[in-house]
Structure formats: C-alpha cells, structure tokens
C-alpha cells in the first residue's frame, strides 16, 4: 500500500499535486471507526478535491459511483483519499482534521518542505515519512516520454496503460476529444481516487504539443 508514493514530475507540476489520506489502524483503533472516517471524508469533500475515493469501493470517477455511495459503503477500515492542487488548501484540510480530533491517521503525499511549513503553521509536526528513491532496475522498460510516466505514476496500483495515454493524446491532437475528456477517461482507471485529473490534463496538453 505504497500507492500514493513514487509520483514523478517536475517541481512546478508537483506543486499542484497533493493527496490527503485518512484511515484507521487495524487492531488498534479500527473498531467503531466508520463514523470518524466519514466525518474525515466530509472534511476532505469540504475543500473541493479534484478527486476523491475509498480504496476499497472506488472513486467519484468509478462507474455508477459517487460521493454519496462512498459514504454509504464506508466501513471501519475504509481508506479515504482527497486530491488537491495547492498546499494552501491542504493546510485548511489538515487544520480541520486536527481540530476534529478524530484519532485517525492522516497522511499527506506531496512536496515535503511545503507540507512541513504548512503543518507548522497549524501546530503539527510530521511523525514519519516515506521517501521515494525513484525507479531502479531495468528502466529501459519505462515509457520514453516523461509526461506518460508522470501520468502513470498517479495511479500507484498501475492500472493506467501507457498505450491508453498515447491513444488519448492522439485523439486530442486529432480533435476527436478534449484534453479534459482524456483526463477524465484516465481517472476511471484509478479505483481509489488518487489520480489528479487536472494535472493529467496539463500533462496531456504537453504531450499533444510534442
């Protein structure tokens, strides 16, 4: 479950890419956690996330799914995500989560220095980090275009095909679909709702210009 780590990209692009995750801890505080997790989910929703979802039931882009269904299907072990495009919004989300004092674990995936500064301003200090050392091994297997890798790594479970990204970019170039439609199609592949649709749109536009 390292799914929100290893997102690649240039700093300017990563400044628009933050995932906030909320979960209970199995065997420690999961009993009766569902209402607390739902309260956290409502906080995530309050700040207009670009994407959101539950790793166990799907995202707002999953077929026949939406925010209400995510709430309806919440359990003690739901893993909720919200995706945001700036650290200021993340700071407000964190402040509300801190004030709500739910006792659930909260994890931000994003630029460390920005997150650390935001956390300090609201009286938090990160407890633990997981740092990506990148991709090792037979890296010639990776897509040549960095934009494709940046898009693929926004679904940590690897459900976004590089061929689909290429096809959709081609369709955008031919005027068959818009970059927004292409990004929304890709978002359906990421079942847990951590795919940043707006960043994907920008990356597709960069690909199209190549």
């Amino acid at each position: 479950m390292t799914h929100t780590l290893h997102r690649t990209g240039e700093i300017e692009s990563l400044k628009k890419d933050y995932v906030v995750l909320v979960m209970s801890c199995r065997g420690f505080n999961d009993a009766g956690a569902a209402p607390k997790l739902v309260e956290a989910l409502k906080i995530l929703a309050r700040y207009n996330p670009i994407n959101m979802g539950d790793m166990k039931t799907g995202s707002i882009w999953t077929k026949d799914h939406n925010f209400e269904k995510i709430v309806e299907k919440a359990t003690d072990t739901s893993i909720f995500h919200g995706v945001y495009k700036d650290i200021e919004t993340v700071k407000m989300v964190l402040k509300d989560l801190k004030d709500a004092n739910l006792g659930m674990s909260v994890v931000v995936s994003g630029l460390y220095n920005e997150t650390l500064n935001a956390a300090r301003e609201i009286g938090l200090t990160p407890h633990t980090v997981m740092v990506s050392l990148g991709i090792w091994g037979k890296t010639d297997l990776l897509p040549e275009e960095p934009e494709i890798l940046d898009i693929q790594t926004m679904c940590g479970h690897g459900l976004i095909s590089k061929n689909l990204v290429k096809k959709l970019a081609k369709d955008v170039k031919l005027g068959i679909i818009s970059s927004d439609e292409a990004a929304r199609t890709l978002a359906k592949c990421c079942t847990c709702g951590i795919f940043n649709v707006e960043r994907a749109k920008e990356l597709i536009e960069k690909l199209v210009k190549k």
Binding site: C25, G103, V107, S109, T128, M130, S132
Partner: peptide, 13 residues
Amino acid sequence: PYKPNMKINMGLG
C-alpha cells in the same frame, strides 16, 4: 538521489 515529494504521516492517529 531522493524525490522531494514524499508520503508524510501527520501524527494524528
């Protein structure tokens, strides 16, 4: 080298 974007546990659990 390591990436500037990380997974950061905020210590709220």
